[in-house]
Amino acid sequence: MLVQQLANGVFLGAVYALFAIGYTLIFGVLDILNLAHAAIFMLAAFVALSLAGLGVPLVLAFALALVVAGLLGVLLDRVAFAPLRRRNAGTLVPLISSIGAAIIMQGVARGIWGPDEQRFPANALSTAEIHIGSLTVGALDVVILAIALVLMGVLSYVLRSTALGRSIRAVAADRVAAALLGVDIERTIALTFFIASALGGAAGILIGLQYNSVSLDMGARIELKGLAIIILGGMGSVTGAVIGAFLLGAVETLSVAYISSSYRDAIAFGVMFLILVLRPTGLFGKRALRAA
């Protein structure tokens, strides 16, 4: 029973992690919270669903929706953040403009897909189950977990061992120093938005698949969790976000199993609150993205 719940927690946590990393990357590089992240998460799920509805194979639909999400992120930066950056507008104004962008994206989604919850085509998803001892897991869950872990692995490799990753960490560490070394700051920021938004989009699609449900409010439901995770992990720390996400996933599934599903969020946020009282800077500092 406990093992089963922990397994469920891992499935949930992996997707939370993917989502929360997006906040972390952008916060690390720009010191701002991108409150339109959850809207891109939702839009990507709709795009994947529509493509699947048109008969595009799920894998391809997933990949295309990731690219769309990434490009939306770049567009978001151009429209909502870059103009403010040029005017040295601080961190609060971009927060507000990202909320505005989120509301617009929400409106566009409602216009295109309507207000109702939607499902993937009936035959698109596997319902197979895998039994390991007393443990029962859905084949789909395993695939989702694998995709999430692979994406996180790729991200970690990119950040640690590629020129792009080094330039992202340099901009996060000291934008002026990076500029003086010849790093193209705007290009680096754009690519950071692409990566962060593609990962957020991936999370949206995977959650859509996990629950076989895509809806306008799916972003709003995960947004606070994502923000709580990155605060718990230590703002700007990728490792912290991943650990925080798995922690939240585990606490959520355990509280559903052993206490009551109606207290799930209350308990999850209660635990986070306790941890933050003990460690106000979160599990890791901002330095972790810089060190990666």
């Binding site: 020129a163 960490r169 340099a170 560490a173 003086l180 070394l181 010849g182 193209d184 060190a291």
Partner: peptide
């Protein structure tokens, strides 16, 4: 190319990474 006041190390990155970032940025690759 400027060597800035106060040196402005990319403090949490290694010595080698500081050099790599600089080379990669200046020569695009």
């Amino acid at each position: 190319v400027q060597v800035p006041e106060g040196r402005r190390m990319l403090a949490s990155m290694s010595v080698e990474e500081n050099l790599q970032v600089a080379g990669e940025a200046a020569h695009r690759g």
